[in-house]
Amino acid sequence: MSQTAAHIADDWNKGAIPGMTGPSRGFVAHVLVALTALFGLNWLVVTYVPFEIKMIGSSYLIFFYHFPGAINGALFYLGLFAFSVAYLRTKKPVWDRRARSAAAVGFLANMVLLVTGSTWAKAAWNAWWVWSDPRLMSAAVASLIFLGYLMLQSAVEEPARRRQISAVYGILAFVNIPVVHFSIQWFGQTSHPMKFDAMSAESIVHTRWYAVAAFLVLYSALYRWRYDRTTRNERVEEALNRIRRIEERTHA
């Protein structure tokens, strides 16, 4: 074995490639904190907030799982924007990996938002999807935009080109979010249940923001997992390329 190949094997054995030796203690602790926070959320939903409110009954309880999707999705999309700008300025692959991980988690949060929103719509309006609801539509359009970002990852083969295109599209996607929001809010037709006065009760507001924090811990754990996995895959790919080059030189 050549010296370079020996170094790669050594790195591998030491677990220098993140994720190769299983999840770190820090990651396990992160997940445990997230699960505990979510357990706390369920406890608040069962014991602290009113079981039902005027006009929409107990179906409103799903908003404690729905609302964090909107806030956290926006936070991770903001992360995607910041990491994409950082990549274009520095050209360091680490920012691209961070941007991709943020986009994946942001998309997941957005999907939780849509699924819980759609479930509530079925209970309240007897329809899984209501085209005239502005918030539902703006969340759906944002999901489609960021789904495009994720699809772009597998569409471009050359890594440097992929990073460049992804960063540009990531910025474009984020600056389009206000357009999506305002165009649909201003020209939509119905009002969203979050505008109901009963939703502003103190216990509901406290629990809603606690839910955002609890889900943020969960989503940040997923972001961490995704980032480590992306880093590991890229380093494995680099290592394999180095081994291939060594083999080619040996055979030549």
Partner: peptide, 29 residues
């Protein structure tokens, strides 16, 4: 701008539509 991203990709014409149409939905509305 999106055309400059996608012309060189395999299946770039499809990617153009996937990336472009959601961006246009708000102004089409």
């Amino acid at each position: 701008l999106i055309s400059a991203m996608t012309w060189s990709l395999p299946g770039g014409d499809v990617m153009l539509r996937i990336l472009l149409f959601p961006m246009l939905l708000p102004i089409l509305n």
